[in-house]
């Protein structure tokens, strides 16, 4: 999948298998990135608004699988579930036991 090559890796101590789909212009997405950084999470992210049309369509199709509204931020965890929106407590909970 060509969106994969646009995923940026943020290295951190705590691996939660997190992929963050974000918008470069969005305040809640920025807060989500900030929280993940504060929690020293290891994650990948992509700013979907900055992708070229075909890659953006591909990303939207992928996000829609997890979050039919395709809203941002969408966090996909371990390719098995997702958190939609800046849900601080849920995100903190996700990384509490991660190593």
């Amino acid at each position: 999948m060509s969106v994969k090559k646009h995923l940026k890796h943020v290295k951190g101590k705590k691996k939660g298998g997190i992929t963050l789909y974000a918008l470069s212009t969005c305040g809640w997405c920025k807060k989500t990135k900030g929280l993940l950084n504060d929690l020293q999470a290891d994650y990948h992210y992509v700013d979907v608004d900055l992708l070229a049309d075909d890659e953006q369509a591909e990303a939207v199709a992928e996000i829609t699988k997890w979050n039919p509204e395709c809203s941002f931020p969408t966090l996909v965890i371990d390719n098995s579930r997702c958190i939609v929106g800046f849900k601080e407590q849920e995100i903190r909970g996700l990384l509490k036991d991660a190593e």
């Binding site: 918008l23 470069s24 212009t25 969005c26 305040g27 809640w28 997405c29 920025k30 807060k31 979907v48 608004d49 953006q56 939207v60 395709c70 809203s71 941002f72």
Partner: peptide, 25 residues
């Protein structure tokens, strides 16, 4: 936070020609 959103709005205005919500695609 508000100025970040306004920066996003201005970016969308420049990119699309209209100031679409910065938190929506």
């Amino acid at each position: 936070f508000t100025k970040d959103l306004i920066r996003g709005l201005l970016a969308n205005e420049a990119r699309y020609g209209h100031g679409a919500c910065p938190c929506r695609l």
